[in-house]
């Protein structure tokens, strides 16, 4: 019988080939796609997230784990769709207007995907009205705003104001090197994530 713990370990190690092989094997043995996702892939990425927060692993390890998960997801996604398994929630993530930094934003995207969210990455230097437009189009329930510069932090404020003004019913979290919980509260964000792994915790807290 396929070993979902071994699949989780393959994701933790960032072993793409092994992740794909074990996913196929599990599905072939009739294990439900939801169980493969949760007990294999998400379980593996969950461990990576915990280790990242504890400074036991760093960005390169997270990236290769996320890539292993992504390859396995390509096998798994059609099966999930056929079985009617919905993602945890829809999230949309972007770096705010005037800011070109994408490493932090990309990590958040990967970690959210790794936790079972459907994530749309709308890139960097995103204007407030584009956020509004994309949220409307995707019906995202969770929105993540990233900024790395002190000078682009005010664009977060403007983006949140635009989203609120458009009357969109979504939870907004913010993050990035200069951002703090105090700033998040000040501009009316629903949550603040200190790092990519914490972004998953914040996003999950929105679902409760």
């Amino acid at each position: 019988m396929a070993d979902l713990q071994a699949l989780a370990n393959a994701v933790i190690k960032g072993n793409q080939a092994e992740s794909v092989r074990l996913t196929k094997e599990a599905l072939g043995e009739g294990i439900g796609p939801k169980q493969v996702l949760e007990d294999g892939l998400i379980a593996g990425m969950g461990v990576v997230g915990v280790r990242f927060k504890a400074n036991e692993v760093y960005i390169p390890e997270v990236l290769i784990s996320a890539r292993a998960m992504k390859m396995a997801m390509e096998v798994l996604e059609p099966k999930l769709a056929a079985a009617g398994v919905a993602p945890l929630a829809k999230a949309l993530v972007g770096t705010v207007q005037g800011d070109l930094h994408d490493i932090g934003k990309n990590l958040v995207v990967m970690m959210l995907k790794g936790a079972g969210f459907h994530v749309e990455d709308i890139g960097v230097d995103v204007k407030p009205d584009v956020f509004v437009e994309k949220i409307k189009a995707s019906n995202a329930q969770i929105v993540g705003l990233s900024a790395l510069l002190t000078t682009t932090m005010p664009a977060m404020d403007k983006t949140i104001a635009a989203i609120r003004q458009a009357g969109l019913d979504c939870k907004i979290m913010i993050g990035g090197a200069p951002v703090t919980q105090i700033y998040a509260s000040k501009i009316g964000a629903d949550g603040y994530a200190a790092d990519a792994a914490s972004a998953v915790d914040v996003a999950k807290s929105f679902l409760n």
Partner: peptide
Amino acid sequence: GTDLFMQMF
């Protein structure tokens, strides 16, 4: 670019 991180492996 950030490919560097994965190419380290």
